[in-house]
Design a protein around this nucleic acid. Structure first.
Length: 596
RNA sequence: GGGGGUGUAGUUCAGUUUGGUUAGAACGCCGGCCUGUCACGCCGGAGGUCGCGAGUUCGAGUCUCGUCGCUCCCGCCA
């Protein structure tokens, strides 16, 4: 039978007591981390969310209490009353904040016993993630996870504090909303009172925050849950949290400045480290040119060099033909890697094949010669130009990629990241921020034979590119910007279109006729005609940001109750079947093929 | 939708290459001893549908086929 709390009340937490408390009578409560029973004296490490304190049961103090302590097991929930005593000489535990003292227990209450946990509740648990997620309430007891979740709270608190102080209003937007055709797959919720119709869960509050600007609220923010029914990744969950912001009467500079201030504040409050602002900037074109990716990891150099102009007339047909067909040839200098084995290079070739690259040419730069299957195809002049462009030095290993620009850049950019890690070029303590600006407005979708918005359809085009909207949409640059941290996109936003005619034109370029866009976005177009101020905003991926702050490699480690790769919750068993009466009420029928 | 990895005791793994008696280890758990440990120590013990289902075989943890879970990646994610 479990003891009741009664009049026992905690006086301190388990990371609080030190030499200055010696002699004090205290009450601690928490979980039994470990029991070390010496037959006589029994030591228990008592754990609460703040830390550990060693409590001591000595038969010399109380025989009854000592006998009761003999039955303690891992994860029992107890309260102890006792006197703080200094550890005997030589018994101080320097690894423990409270290691100078211990609590000599005079009263023990066992509030609850606990089944033997399926894994040890400790810092470095080696247990599979499936088991951790199935017993998430136990996993969440681990110090590492508690630290992450507490840090997440602190980050959210700092965000609110900063934005509140800068005139932003926290305004809630609907979770049951309308499906929008562009973008990710929606999560749908059937409407009982409107049979056959569905709400969609928001992929982001995009349109609502724009409507709030039209409505005159000027500065809005929300730490808000968003939903996308797409396949998962280590940094992607079906429901995730955004710091969503929007401002009126501003341009890019204003939003970037507020964002930098926000990030710097969060880093100062949460991590106690200051960030240099403003952050560096690159245009999309420059980022792709130098790093191959639109979210480059700028913690290390090793930039890509385009060599199309040097090799287009060369005797190496593979390169020359690619350039002739509109492709590019780029090089990556892996400094000092000349001794990579044939197998290592083969493995890297397989690595880039994942990104559709057809091959990976290479040159090993030795003291007096190039060791390479392709060196023989180049003239001395071409060799000299290559050596200069790529900064070849003896000891270098040069990789070449020739392909369509999108493939060559992506594959070589990913190879750059891969080598950066493998060659330990990355300072794991560093936080490198980078704005990427001037994204293209549209990209051509070959399968659907139409233009797609790269960002979203409400993003404003760059004014100087207006003239290109009709004749060459893919050349139009947008007023969109992403914030990149250590190679992760942690935020993105844009200046929005606040003019009805321009918005209609963009819808048309996206392949919608007037009837279609009036039907889907008529309410937005109406709003734009009713006094819409110039406005723009940004949304941060809060989970990713916290993941990087915590030094974790998966957002599941900074979300209290995450889902698996199949979008299931192993703890609750969601998703689950609906009963026939529920389905009937919603006018739904399950296809026979959906059931196994 | 596709590719890779993985699944054996409560947990982490070995055993699978080359099918062969009672499937091992560590930690955890249970019992005993132990008054200064903090990964306590010592002695003893319990614990396994080898993910699931078919098949091949005298015999399957091991081979074949299917299927499911977890995970990483590609596609997808405006």
């Amino acid at each position: 039978m479990a003891d009741l709390l009664g009049d026992m009340r905690r006086t301190h937490h388990c990371n609080q007591l030190g030499a200055e408390n010696v002699g004090m009578e205290v009450v601690l409560m928490g979980w039994v981390q470990r029991r070390r029973d010496h037959g006589g004296v029994i030591f228990v490490d008592l754990r609460d969310r703040e830390g550990l304190t060693q409590v001591v049961f000595n038969p010399g103090v109380s025989n009854d209490v000592h006998a009761k302590a003999h039955g303690l097991r891992s994860e029992f929930v107890i309260g102890v009353r006792g006197r703080v005593a200094p550890r005997p000489d030589g018994m101080v535990n320097a690894n423990l904040t409270t290691g100078a003292i211990e609590v000599m227990v005079t009263e023990l209450r066992i509030f609850n016993e606990a089944a033997t946990p399926p894994f040890l509740i400790e810092e470095d648990t080696d247990v599979s993630e499936a088991i951790r997620l199935t017993h998430r309430h136990l996993d969440l007891r681990r110090p590492q996870l508690q630290k992450n979740i507490i840090l997440r709270h602190k980050a959210a608190a700092a965000v609110r504090q900063y934005l509140n102080g800068n005139g932003f209003l926290d305004i809630e937007t609907p979770v049951l909303t309308r499906s929008t055709p562009e973008g990710a797959r929606d999560y749908l919720v059937p409407s009982r009172v409107n049979p056959g119709q569905f709400y969609a869960l928001p992929q982001s509050p995009q349109i609502f925050k724009q409507l709030l600007m039209v409505a005159g609220y000027e500065r809005y923010y929300q730490i808000v849950r968003c939903f996308r029914d797409e396949d998962l990744r280590a940094d992607r969950q079906p429901e995730f949290t955004q710091i969503d912001m929007e401002m009126s009467f501003v341009g890019e500079e204003d939003i970037m400045a507020i964002s930098e201030g926000l990030i710097a504040y969060v880093f100062q409050e949460v991590m106690g480290i200051s960030q240099t602002i403003p952050f560096d900037r690159l245009t999309y074109a420059e980022a792709v040119d130098r790093y191959g990716l639109d979210k480059p990891d700028t913690r290390f150099d090793m930039e890509l060099k385009e060599i199309s102009d040097i090799v287009e007339g060369s005797g190496f047909k593979v390169f020359a033909d690619v350039v002739k067909k509109g492709g590019i040839v780029k090089a990556l200098n892996a400094k000092g890697c000349v001794d990579f084995s044939r197998k290592e290079i083969d493995d890297l070739t397989k690595f880039v094949a994942v990104y559709k690259a057809k091959g990976l040419a290479w040159i090993k730069v030795r003291e007096n010669e190039w060791q390479s299957p392709i060196a023989k195809f180049f003239t001395d002049e071409e060799k000299a130009k290559l050596a200069e462009r790529i900064d070849m030095q003896p000891g270098d290993l040069i990789f070449f990629m020739a392909d369509k620009p999108a493939i060559a850049n992506e594959a070589l950019g990913q190879l750059r990241n891969h080598l950066g890690q493998r060659l330990n070029l990355i300072d794991p303590e560093a936080f490198n921020f980078l704005w990427v600006t001037h994204f293209p407005m549209f990209e051509w979708d070959e399968t659907e034979k139409r233009h797609q918005a790269l960002h979203h359809p409400f993003t404003a085009p760059l004014e100087e590119d207006y003239s290109l909207l009709e004749k060459d949409p893919t050349a139009v640059r947008s007023r969109a910007y992403d914030l990149v941290l250590n190679g992760f996109e942690i935020g993105g936003g844009s200046i929005r279109i606040h003019d009805m005619d321009l918005q209609s034109k963009v819808f048309k370029i996206l392949g919608m006729d007037k009837e279609t866009y009036q039907g889907k976005f008529g309410f937005l177009l109406d709003a734009l005609q009713s006094g819409a101020p110039p406005h723009g905003g940004l949304a941060f991926g809060f989970d990713r940001l916290v993941m990087l702050l915590c030094g974790e490699s998966s957002i599941r480690d900074v979300i209290a109750f995450p889902k698996t790769q199949k979008a299931a919750c192993l703890l609750t068993g969601a998703p689950s079947d609906a009963s026939q009466p529920q389905l009937d009420e919603l006018s739904l029928r399950i296809k026979a093929t959906a059931k196994v």
